[in-house]
């Protein structure tokens, strides 16, 4: 049986998928995962999940974020107003600019 492993590097960080292990049950999966995926990289916590319990939807079957122009939901579209008056608005706009770029390139 295959178990997917998600590692959190430090408290407060997100758990991110880092690999998987073969194991006959949950207990063994946790034992194997901590060695295989937690021994070298900084690790605070691991989540171990049966692979068959993970459902997937990918970009072959789904149009994530849609296909038509959705510029209205990006801060940068509103270029007649200036975000620099508030650090948090400016920061959000910067994050959105990067996310929109990544989505466009994909």
């Amino acid at each position: 049986m295959i178990w997917e492993v998600f590692r959190q590097a430090k408290p407060g960080k997100y758990h991110q998928h880092c690999g998987n292990v073969h194991a006959p049950d949950r207990e063994m999966a946790k034992l194997f995962a901590q060695i295989q995926h937690g021994r070298r990289m900084q690790t605070n916590s691991l989540w171990v999940v049966p692979q068959e319990e993970v459902s997937e939807v990918d970009s072959d079957e789904a149009a994530f974020g849609g296909a038509t122009d959705k510029a209205y939901r990006w801060a940068m579209t509103y270029n007649r107003v200036d975000a620099s008056f508030a650090a948090e608005v400016e920061e959000s706009e910067e994050e959105q600019r990067e996310a929109a770029k990544a989505q466009e390139e994909a």
Binding site: W74, A75, R80, V81, A86, E91, S92, E93, E95, Q96
Partner: peptide, 16 residues
């Protein structure tokens, strides 16, 4: 917070 930048700028644009 990632999303809110759109909301605030959208609101300001309506005011403008």
């Amino acid at each position: 917070c990632f999303e809110e930048g759109f909301h605030v700028k959208h609101g300001e644009d309506i005011l403008r």
